[in-house]
């Protein structure tokens, strides 16, 4: 029997890797992939607790998370296409039109 704690530790490691990747990488496409990693870690948590509690709600919420992830990927990649057309780069350090 796989203990829930082990699944949560795997999810934690995936989440941490995603966050570190978002902080470290400057390539917009890679940063989007790190967001997908984080959402996957969240799904893993939902599913692990769904099994732990014997409750289907976690699995239904994971379906919603996957839907939002698909929407986020479509929007993010649309932004990348528009960005490359506008500034010919996917380097986040060069995207500073707002001077933030």
């Amino acid at each position: 029997m796989i203990s829930t704690t082990h699944v949560l530790v795997l999810s934690l490691a995936l989440f941490t890797l995603g966050v570190v990747g978002m902080a470290v990488r400057r390539n917009f496409i890679t940063v989007l992939m790190c967001v997908e990693l984080i959402l996957n870690a969240a799904n893993l948590n939902f599913i692990a607790f769904s099994r732990q509690l014997g409750d289907l709600t976690g699995q239904v919420l994971a379906v919603f998370v996957i839907t939002i992830a698909a929407a986020e990927a479509a929007i993010g990649l649309g932004i990348i296409v528009a960005l490359v057309r506008l500034k010919q780069t996917v380097n986040l350090d060069q995207v500073n039109v707002m001077e933030g």
Partner: peptide, 10 residues
Amino acid sequence: VALAGAVGVI
């Protein structure tokens, strides 16, 4: 495999 893939991504 999952962790190796995640490390590969970054």
